[in-house]
């Protein structure tokens, strides 16, 4: 069970969360706070696993709540999902290791993704956030999440969700299961940040997530391509062929 506290000064906002979270059988709402001080009390008393936190609330804001909580309790902080109408706090939220950042109004789908990310963090303890005690044993130097804006939303995208990345001049296109996002980035910049055990540059203009690679194909034209599990084809350079095959066999 994920014990959850909702914090929002607006009744309707809390009601929305409560109703939508009813569909998540493993989410148990243990309390609702309508102000910063109420929320701090609640979290201290109930010690929940997850906190849905509005940023603008009367008195103190969401970040003050997190600050106050981390100074008064030695228990691990709950995972935090921010829910707010303001997009300018995303980077700050990211810096305090929030799990997700929901911009109001958000859809059921978006909330579901956020809850899933919380579950993923619980089930993969070696990738816990910086709030847990100390550092994990083998801290990876590679990016685990990317934060960016796309189509008016803020995404805290775990890199594990990326299927492949394609270059488009000064931009890169990041493809996930359902969507693609254009970022003003370079392939080289991204490549060094991604774990080479998982992400492989197969072409001047493509990086694939080996987790989603089904097979390597030779096209009738003699060119090579990587076939992803969802049927997508990504072009591949000849020189990368052996490397890909080797990694695929090992995996």
């Amino acid at each position: 069970m994920i014990h959850t506290v909702l914090a929002d000064d607006e009744v309707l906002a809390r009601q929305k969360l409560r109703q939508l979270l009813r569909d998540e059988p493993d989410v148990d709402i243990v309390g609702e706070g309508a102000s910063a001080s109420e929320t701090i009390e609640l979290v201290r008393a109930a010690g929940p696993d997850l906190l849905f936190l509005d940023i603008r609330m009367p008195g103190m804001d969401g970040f003050d709540v997190v600050g106050a909580l981390s100074s008064i309790t030695d228990k691990p902080l709950p995972r935090i999902v921010f829910t707010t109408a303001y997009d300018q706090y995303a980077v700050r939220a990211f810096e305090i290791h929030a799990v997700d950042y929901l911009l109001k109004p958000f859809t059921t789908e978006r909330l579901r993704t956020a809850v899933q990310r919380v579950r993923d963090q619980f089930s993969a303890p070696e990738q816990t956030t910086g709030q847990s005690n100390g550092k994990s044993k083998h801290e990876s130097p590679y990016t685990t999440r990317i934060v960016f804006k796309s189509r008016g939303r803020i995404l805290f995208l775990p890199v594990a969700d990326i299927r492949w990345i394609g270059a488009e001049e000064n931009y890169v296109r990041i493809c996930t299961e359902k969507e693609t996002h254009l970022l003003r980035e370079t392939m080289a910049h991204l490549e060094v940040r991604l774990d080479p055990q998982v992400f492989l540059r197969v072409h001047r203009s493509s990086i694939v997530n080996l987790q989603y690679v089904k097979e390597v194909r030779t096209e009738p034209t003699g060119d090579f391509s990587v076939l992803l599990v969802n049927g997508q084809k990504v072009p591949m350079s000849r020189s990368y062929r052996s490397r890909v095959s080797e990694l695929l066999i090992r995996g």
Binding site: Q127, T144, V147, R184
Partner: peptide, 8 residues
Amino acid sequence: ETARFVAQ
């Protein structure tokens, strides 16, 4: 910067 990367 359009994107931020974090290694945790």
